[in-house]
Amino acid sequence: MATPLNLKELSKKEELFTPGHRLCAGCGAPIVAKMVVMAAEHPLVMTNATGCLEVSTCISENTAWKMPWIHSAFENAGATIGGIEAMYRSLKKQGKIKEDIKFIAWGGDGGTYDIGLQALSGVMERGQDVLYVCYDNGAYMNTGIQRSSATPLGADTTTCPAGSVVQGKPQGRKDLAKIIAAHQGTYVAQASPSNWQDLMKKVRKALDHKGPSFMNIIAPCNRGWRTQLNDAILMSRLAVDTCYWPLFEIQDNITTITYKPKEKKPLVDFLKPQGRFKHLFAPGNEAILKQAQDDVDAYWERLLKEEACFAK
């Protein structure tokens, strides 16, 4: 019987992702990590691509993970977890392992959207029984805030700096969830720590799914987003309520939206508190703001249509 997803019961559960790690104050990533680990009811084995979460949760002889945890190279958390899962299947078949073990790979957006996409695609296509979690903070934060293909339109980073000619990143964000959903037999979900029950339900669904799963979870970064230290959850909620970060899942090519904001807030509510978008509010950049809003609207409308299309 799985632990009910309420705070009273969950607070009794042993924490397997523990405090004492060295992630920045106010970072969204450890909140996400804690929720994912807490949702699981099976023994876990983790791989972690190079990134903030990796470098800060395992320092010298200290680890925040109470489980087997393997730091892979930057580009191959997907392949590494694939190797481990294949070994497990073989040992299980031989009767050498009795337990049901679940396998989770972690990567930031740089290690997932960019350099790790090939290995991620491989493990998904082979139909291996793993969950890959991307904690998406929208840039290479570990090396000092360089743009990634998850960086949103107009954001200022050290390699797409806002100046007098170029106004931050000229391109939008890659739609990774849809790319992974295009792999047969996958369970794909987008989640946010602001909607923690939704997030944890999706983790359980992903781990119960017989085959490859992928979760993309927004993880605000106050250093890169230039926001207040205490508003990671608020920012992730604004991302959801503006439909910048819709909560949905795709299984067998069927899209289900798992949360619809009662009132869809304007995108500027999400952009304005973030220093990385400050220049967009200067006179002359109205078109970029409009473009960003239009992109969000179009994506949301499309999701609604996709969902309606498959409604029973």
Binding site: G110, I115, Y140, T143, G144, Q146, T158, T159, P161, G163
Partner: peptide, 15 residues
């Protein structure tokens, strides 16, 4: 591509 301790070169050249 970002990598420590070389990233400054690309950050400067991006500008």
């Amino acid at each position: 591509y970002p990598i420590t301790p070389a990233t400054e070169i690309m950050e400067i050249l991006s500008r």
